[in-house]
Amino acid sequence: MSPSPPYAPLAGALAALVLVAFVASVRIGYATIDVGGALADLLAGRTSLGALVLMELRLPRAIIGALVGFSLGLAGAAMQGLLRNPLADAGVIGVSGAAAFGAVMAFYSGLSASFGLALPTGGILGAGVAVALLYALAGRGSATMTLILAGVAISSLAGALTALALNLSPNPYAATEVMFWLMGSLADRSMTHVQFAAPLLIAGWLMILVCGPALDALSLGEDTATSLGFHMARVRLLLIVGTALAVGPAVAVTGAIGFVGLVVPHLLRPLVGGRPGRLLLVSGLGGAALVLAADIAVRVVGVRPELKLGVVTALIGAPFFLLLLWRLRREA
């Protein structure tokens, strides 16, 4: 077993990677703009085409990419630590699907038109119910199979309810719009989205990050973690609410971008010596870098209409998931 690299340089390198991906995401786009000039215009308060593109398109897209990627990576690592299972990912186990259903309900009920935070609130509620249900069904380090089955059940239910809402939609255009939104994308989001999602996401991150030592202790089971001074009921609640806050608004803004929370913690786990507490921050950073990079890729490949980010992550993530399942099966 190769020794894992020191933690601080690893986190630093990943943060640098996020920064590079962020800058690249801002620079790359369909319109050729002089980013430096546009930034200068923006800061000076001059209205130019470049400044407009930067403020209305590029920056929100990159910021949301980083925020959502961080949330998904972090939430994946948190769920895996809590359920003590490497296959727990918000998308795989139905949390994203439930969040999407919550957001769709907020959209259809008309609440989102009258109350700006209705969409993320719907997402949070959906995600929270799903995580709590999963914990009830598959908590306490139960077998992988139970977790996957519980996830399949929650995914199917959320999917069926979402389909029902689409089915009953009186307006076919609205239904099409929702379907495209469900595919998951960072395109055409605005600073308004950033403003309403960011505080909720960051609150969720903090709730998850403070649980790091408890997740480390939990790798020896609940009794041992309790004997090490952690109130497991509190830890569970923090992680469930934190995950709901991190996943709900993310899904409400971008739709479902799956498998980030599965792939990223899996790749980074060996680099932190398997320690679930240390996996949290680096998974968030890795998730941000991955989502930004994937979003650059969908713009660079130039397929028209633009590939939806959620479609791309699923195309890469689902085979990865199968591979992981295959390997776990062989180890068992």
Binding site: G141, D216, L218, S219, L220, G221, D223, L228, G229, G273
Partner: peptide, 19 residues
């Protein structure tokens, strides 16, 4: 008790220092 992740032995022992 078992370790749920492939943790290094001394990291497991280090968990005893968490309190």
């Amino acid at each position: 008790s078992e370790a749920h992740w492939p943790l290094r032995a001394d990291h497991v022992v280090g968990l005893g220092r968490l309190p």
